[in-house]
């Protein structure tokens, strides 16, 4: 318990509590349950993508193509719905996840089989996926009136006061807790990122594990793609532009080490919530939404400085006299 209180998650939780308290002192309506639920729902896409990004970063990689993947999948889903309104939502969900996973697998295979640095691969696929949206849509928008009610209704479907979008984020988070803590693959993400050389000796295939991380990240980006266009009832080339940076920011703020192998699922969720609360609070406290970008930039820098401080490597303790208080 004391370990938890000193942990980065506890500090982040404290920061979120202070932030909420500050906002509540002037604008109590912000912390009303219904509004918090709205904030959570609004942050759900960020949470889902950040969880996928987390496993990628754990394995010493980075996936900058998630937002483009999201947008391309979203466009395909929207166009499919516009063309064939009869296709059930379940099929569209399946298509979104599968399509996202394939795009993730393309990233993963280039990292695994060709050993191309992940930042180069995903920088490239990011522009390619984004460009493909234009190619398939010819730059046209898919608007609300072209989508079926079932298509747009799914993420907003209310269960126990929370929309489906929020429940999906909760479900994904729950699956991640189980996967990370209780499956060999989950532990392999840490092993591969923490000490890739040693992972080989334990029978873990480093490249394959990284590939799996990209597939997971891609599948979640695809899933979010459908949810995104359905929720906002619009699809166009530039949706979620630059969102990949917000996703990486949520991970970094949540304490996921960019060097791999360190960080927790809870941390990522808290990091995403922190960004989500800031974003939703700005209009409430009468600060221009144009401040949001600078605030998240500052948060990233503060978080990474904080990460580095807590993980600075110490030299060997050789002196007996120094052992107690080092």
């Amino acid at each position: 318990m004391t370990a938890f209180l000193k942990s980065r998650e506890a500090i982040l939780l404290g920061a979120i509590a202070v932030l909420l308290a500050l906002i509540a002192s002037r604008f109590p309506a912000f912390v009303e349950p219904s509004n918090l639920a709205r904030v959570f729902t609004d942050t759900s896409p960020l949470i889902i993508l950040a969880l996928g990004q987390t496993v990628v970063i754990l394995t010493r990689c980075i996936d900058l193509s998630v937002a483009a993947n999201l947008a391309l999948t979203g466009m395909v889903c929207a166009m499919l719905n516009a063309a064939m309104p009869g296709v059930p939502v379940a099929a569209i969900l399946l298509l979104a996840v599968a399509m996202g996973a394939v795009m993730g697998a393309i990233n993963g295979v280039m990292v695994w089989k060709l050993s191309i640095p992940p930042i180069v691969v995903t920088l490239g696929t990011m522009t390619i996926y984004r460009g493909l949206i234009f190619v398939i849509s010819d730059g046209a928008w898919v608007n609300a009136h072209e989508m079926s009610p079932a298509f747009t209704g799914f993420p907003r479907f209310d269960i126990l006061g929370l929309p489906m979008l929020a429940w999906i984020a909760i479900l994904v988070a729950a699956l991640f807790f189980v996967m990370i803590a209780r499956t060999p693959l989950g532990r392999a993400f840490y092993a591969v990122g923490g000490n890739p050389g040693a992972a080989v000796y334990t029978g873990i295939d480093v490249g394959r594990t990284q590939f799996m991380a990209f597939v997971i990240s891609g599948a979640l980006a695809g899933l979010t793609g459908y949810l995104w266009v359905a929720r906002y009832s619009v699809a166009y080339v530039d949706i979620a532009g630059g969102f990949e940076l917000e996703v990486v920011a949520a991970c970094v703020i949540g304490g996921i080490s960019i060097a791999g192998g360190a960080g927790t699922i809870l941390g990522t969720i808290l990091g995403a919530l922190f960004l989500g609360i800031v974003k939703n609070a700005l209009p409430v406290v009468n600060i221009s939404p144009f401040w949001q970008m600078a605030i998240s930039g500052t948060a990233i820098i503060v978080a990474v400085a904080f990460n580095a401080r807590s993980s600075r490597s110490k030299g060997r303790i050789i002196l007996k006299s120094a052992e107690g208080h080092a």
Binding site: R187, Y190, G194, N195, G197, A198, A199, Y201, A262
Partner: peptide, 10 residues
């Protein structure tokens, strides 16, 4: 093994 093939974070 000669070098310790272990994981600091686990």
């Amino acid at each position: 093994h000669q070098e310790t093939v272990l994981f600091d974070e686990l």
